[in-house]
Amino acid sequence: TEHYTFHTEEQAQRAAKKFKKQGLPVTIHEKNGKFTLQVN
């Protein structure tokens, strides 16, 4: 499991699309105004 932190939801969504294209499951969590992208 890898985690990436982004300052905006837009950045997180863009990164999520790249991972999803590779067939990886992705979840985004919002915490304290930051967005954490979790790749399993």
Rank of each mutant, 00 (worst) to 15 (best):
G23E: 02
L37P: 02
T27A: 07
F6L: 02
K18L: 09
Y4Q: 05
E30Q: 09
Q11V: 04
T8Q: 04
L24E: 02
Q22K: 10
G33H: 03
Q11H: 06
K18Q: 09
K20H: 09
F35W: 15
A16P: 00
T27H: 07
V26R: 00
K17F: 06
E2W: 13
H29G: 07
G33V: 00
K21Y: 06
Q13N: 08
H3E: 13
E2C: 15
G23W: 02
T27K: 07
Q11M: 08
V26E: 00
Q22A: 13
L24R: 07
I28V: 07
T1K: 10
V39F: 13
P25T: 15
T5V: 13
H7W: 11
F19M: 07
K17L: 11
T27W: 07
P25W: 14
F6P: 00
A12Q: 00
F35E: 02
Y4K: 04
F35M: 02
F35L: 03
Q13L: 14
K21W: 06
Q38F: 13
V26A: 05
K34N: 07
G23P: 00
H7S: 12
T5F: 12
T5W: 14
R14G: 04
T36L: 13
F6A: 01
K17I: 12
T8G: 03
H29P: 00
H7E: 14
E9Q: 11
H7R: 08
K31F: 12
G23Q: 03
F6V: 01
L37F: 05
Q11C: 12
T27D: 05
F6K: 00
E2A: 11
T36F: 14
T1Q: 10
T36W: 14
E9F: 15
I28P: 00
L24G: 02
N40F: 11
A16T: 02
T5S: 08
N40W: 12
H3A: 09
Y4S: 04
K31V: 14
E30D: 05
V26Q: 00
K21N: 11
E9W: 15
N32V: 00
Q11K: 06
T27M: 07
F6I: 01
K20E: 14
A15F: 08
R14P: 00
E2I: 13
K18V: 09
K34Q: 11
E10F: 07
Q11W: 05
Y4L: 10
E10R: 09
V26D: 00
N32G: 07
L24N: 04
N32Y: 05
Q11T: 05
K18W: 15
Q13G: 04
V26P: 01
A15H: 05
H29W: 11
N32C: 13
H29D: 06
G33I: 00
Q13F: 07
K21E: 14
V39M: 06
Q11Y: 04
T36P: 02
N40G: 14
H3T: 12
A15I: 06
L24W: 09
L37D: 02
A16L: 07
F6T: 01
E10A: 11
Q38A: 09
A16Q: 04
N40L: 13
Q38N: 07
Q11N: 05
T36S: 06
H29Y: 13
Q13S: 06
R14N: 10
E30L: 07
E30R: 09
N40S: 11
Q11D: 13
T27G: 03
T1S: 10
F35D: 03
N32F: 05
F19S: 01
A15V: 08
L24F: 12
Y4E: 05
A15P: 00
K31Q: 11
A12L: 03
T5D: 06
F6Q: 01
L24P: 01
K21D: 15
Q22F: 10
K18M: 12
H29T: 14
P25E: 15
A16H: 02
K20Y: 08
T8P: 00
K34R: 10
G33N: 04
E9N: 07
Q13W: 07
T1F: 13
R14D: 09
Q13M: 12
T1A: 10
I28Y: 02
K18D: 08
K31A: 11
Q22R: 12
K17E: 15
A12V: 05
T8F: 04
P25F: 15
Q13V: 10
P25G: 13
T1I: 12
K20I: 15
H3I: 14
V26F: 07
T8Y: 04
H7N: 13
Q22E: 09
Y4C: 14
K34H: 13
E10P: 04
T1V: 12
P25R: 15
I28T: 01
V39S: 03
Q38T: 15
L24V: 11
N40K: 09
G33A: 01
R14E: 14
F19I: 06
A16W: 04
K20Q: 14
T5K: 05
P25M: 15
N40E: 12
K31N: 12
K17Y: 08
T1H: 14
F19A: 04
H29E: 12
G23D: 04
Q22P: 02
L37M: 06
Q11P: 01
G33P: 02
G23A: 03
Y4T: 04
T5I: 14
F35Y: 11
T8H: 04
F6S: 01
Q11I: 04
Q38M: 13
K34M: 12
E30A: 08
H3F: 14
K20S: 10
N32L: 04
K18I: 11
A16G: 03
E2K: 13
A12E: 00
Q13R: 12
Q13E: 09
F6E: 00
E10Y: 07
H29A: 10
T8W: 03
Q11L: 09
G23Y: 03
